[in-house]
Nucleic acid binder design. Sequence first.
DNA 1: GGCTCCCGTT
Length: 634
Amino acid sequence: MKWKMLLSASSLSQHFRSLLRSCSVTSSLHPGKQLHAAATVSGLLSFPNYFLLNALLHLYASCSSLPYAHYLFDQIPQSHKDTVDYTTFIKCLSRQGYPQKALNLFAEMRQRGLSIDGVSMVCVLNACARLGDVKVGEQCHAGVVKIGLLKCVRVCNALMDMYVKCGGLVGEVKKVFDEMEDPSVVSWTVVLEGVVKWEGVENGRVLFDRMPERNEVAWTVMLVGYVGNGLTKEAFMLLQQMVFSCGFGLNYVTLSSVLSACAQSGDVSMGRWVHGYGLKMMGWDMDVMVGTSLVDMYAKCGRIDAALAVFNNTSRRNVVTWNAILGGLAMHGKGKAVVDMFPCMVEEVKPDAMTFMALLSACSHSGLVEKGLQFFKELESVYGIRPEIEHYGCMVDLLGRAGQLEEAEAVVRKMPIPPNEFVLGSLIGSCYTHGKLQLGERIMTELVHMDPLNTEYHILLSNMYVLSGKVDEANSFRQILKKRGIKKVPGMSSIYVDGKLHQFSAGDKSHSQTAEIYIMLNDMIRRLRFSGYVPNTSSQVLFGCSGRDDCTEEALEEVEQVLFSHSEKLALSFGLISTVSGSPLYIFKNLRICQDCHSAMKIASDIYNREIVVRDRYRFHSFKQGSCSCSDYW
DNA sequence: GGCTCCCGTT
């Protein structure tokens, strides 16, 4: 009788495990939880059943439910945890954003003398890839060789992926690949990603065409490569081939990957196509990641109204979606909208650390000092979020921009984490804006220790010396910069016209329409001057003129010429001659827009009757009828 | 007996 009961219990357990497996495969958390409850009630879990526990652990890991997975992992007695249990939880930690914890757990597993198999090695290599830790990755490589796992295709794939993600050691990737007896389509795809990322999209295409077989991932990698490099036409051609000739459907991972690339490169035409595709296939009930990527894409492409429309129509929203829209509004200087929307967010989802970055930067960009201080206070006391260095950075920025330099410095001195170069960099920026030379000098000393090769801060301080009449100090600074050979990151501006990205550097003459662009530029400067534009040479005197130390009239003229051929103005001139009159222009700049270009854009938006949207490294400026959305508050 | 690789939102 007892034997019969045991037998039925064992078959019941098998039944449960097979049901749990199907929940894991489909990431069905709710039915899985019900099974968990049923297993508990039936008494199956009241005596040790390690396979069932592992199936439950796997369920929660597959459903990205870290707290439950952690609970299950702890439920398994230490003496009975085997390689499979560890592997399941290591993968879960790595995927949920804790790759370091995953590696720590692997170390624990090894200390306990448990064997390493191909599967656990794949998971550990994956954690190294996510962490970007090539050192541990190389140790694993040695382990792979030692255990004889090089014949295992998936291990090799994970190994190559680790080298791709950890700084692009494409040589290592190819070495592993060449030794493989029978590389799979995944192996080829990993190499493809490495080549696209580190050897350029053209080289990637050569490899793509040579691949014996291509899956949707390979197509996605290639697409993202094109979009990320501004090659919209090529991307559309590839997409057409993928969907219409080869019959691939686009899944949600492909859609969000492509959208993320669109957001980065500012390619709204491809972004819109993906939006249309998503609507046709899924309607508004689309995947939460796709919806979020859409919101982010529209916001980062300067279409904040479209971002809001998508946000309001999406039926699935999580904290990331909210963060995307609040961050987008913040970048567009719509601080009040952010403050007004926050209470609605709290009703719907729990805000996280990232939310407060968006909130504080919104206050910072809109000069809402009181509101920002209040948010910062509530961050810990109401929402239980421990402030991170980025939050302190936002506070320093908020107070500094508003001219409250003493308060900003007090934040730096009192913060429990040592300030990094971004925090101090923001402070020195505010010192420049508000002419606080002495504080600037002090901060500079600290910054030089932290980041001796940074040019931006050196230039800022040197400019401050000039503005306060200390030309000698400025000159000595310039000498230091010259001696050390510190080079400025070149400013680049780009603009999409007819699905093609056109890039300009300062004084660029490489564009095929250079002659027309410069004719337009000269005409524009003339009209700008006529409307009251005065070149702002004050901050350029120092580093603009190619190493001249004098400030004669000719030097000044030279400085003006440098100003006029700033990359933003070239992109604007090109945009004006190559688009329909009255249509808005969207320009992307890799650094902060300069003061002079900012004034020029304001007037240009009026005299040419165009909306000009400029995305710089930090935020958006929308110029319309002579004024800017930032209200000149940077 | 189970745990696995490539593209994935702020």
